[in-house]
């Protein structure tokens, strides 16, 4: 690194010289604070993206391959001469299909719970007076072409049988997920751009403050990289500190939001697991967030500072 020559190792017990006077100047607290704020926002955006992806995977995994088959008049015989009910015949036909799995009929109790919001307690006791269809659920190929073929076959066994899939819901969920992820990416880009701009302004202010020192060192034969590297290291240090602070500040907020989101994610007994349980549910990536933000902020600071200083030095002969 070019800058090492003016920060050379010295006999022990003496501080390393700082020709440009970067350490002598007070820390640029504004830079650290702004980068911390940007990192806080970036952490929220990253966590939002992570949560959206995780929830979407969770929901889509079920919805995408779920088939719900409704068999009207389920207990009636398939044929007058047969003792096989319509629902049993459909179940048997479904279980023979190699592309389907987890085929099972919902019990009257399960059906009752499902319909309770609309039909009330009577749905559980069977006292509604409404002829409820038999409901079978299965996992399998839910594409339209496969479902059309299946529907034809089942209607030959039990006319009036309906098949519903999670495809429509999955498509809408996918669109929602993608738009949320795009929003998170846009926020990250804006945050990075703002952070880079603030670093650029801070570096130019630093150069203006230390113009004479830079002029002198330049005149003594310092290469551009000898001057740019100490600036870049100092700004990277400050931006990294800001990134770490912002990431750490975001953690409690993210944990709180994670607790709120646990219900949507259908985490079992989410509310009863306490802080320890909640902490264990936090993705590893989230714990690494402050360190990642520190490194990214330091990298942005280093790159912008170096580029800014090298550009500024072009004004010198």
């Amino acid at each position: 690194m070019g800058g090492s020559c003016i920060m050379a190792d010295r006999p022990s017990g003496r501080a390393r010289p700082d020709p440009i006077g970067l350490r002598a100047a007070s820390h640029d607290r504004l830079l650290i604070a702004v980068v911390a704020a940007m990192s806080f926002l970036a952490a929220l955006a990253m966590a939002g993206n992570l949560a959206t992806t995780s929830l979407a995977d969770h929901w889509l995994g079920g919805a995408r391959n779920m088939l719900t088959i409704e068999v009207p008049d389920p207990t009636a015989a398939v044929q007058a001469s047969s003792s096989v009910t319509r629902i049993d015949a459909v179940l048997a036909a479904l279980r023979q299909r190699p592309t389907l799995s987890a085929v099972r009929a919902l019990s009257p109790a399960e059906l009752g719970r499902l319909l309770k919001p609309w039909l009330g307690d009577a749905s559980s006791s069977g006292g509604t007076g409404i002829a409820l269809p038999g409901v079978i659920i299965a996992q399998g190929d839910a594409r339209a072409s496969a479902v059309a073929g299946l529907s034809t076959g089942l209607n030959q066994i039990a006319p009036g049988t309906l098949i519903e899939t999670g495809g429509g819901l999955a498509a809408r969920l996918t669109t929602l997920t993608e738009s949320l992820q795009a929003s998170a990416a846009a926020i990250l880009l804006i945050v990075a751009a703002v952070a880079a701009s603030v670093v650029g302004v801070s570096v130019r202010a630093g150069l203006a403050q230390r113009r004479e020192a830079v002029d002198i060192i330049h005149g003594l034969g310092a290469r551009d990289s000898d001057i740019a590297s100490p600036f870049a290291r100092e700004i990277a240090r400050q931006a990294g500190l800001g990134g770490l602070l912002g990431g750490l500040a975001a953690l409690p907020v993210l944990l709180w939001l994670g607790r709120l989101a646990a219900g949507f994610a259908l985490v079992p007994h989410a509310a009863d697991r306490g802080v320890a349980g909640m902490l264990m549910d936090v993705p590893v990536l989230l714990w690494a967030g402050p360190v990642v933000l520190m490194l990214v902020a330091a990298l942005i600071g280093w790159g912008v500072a170096r580029t800014t200083v090298l550009g500024w030095l072009r004004h010198l002969a």
Partner: peptide
Amino acid sequence: HLNTFDNVALPLRLA
């Protein structure tokens, strides 16, 4: 911000 020694040493450190 540099003392006498470090001011004089600067060209040698650059080299």
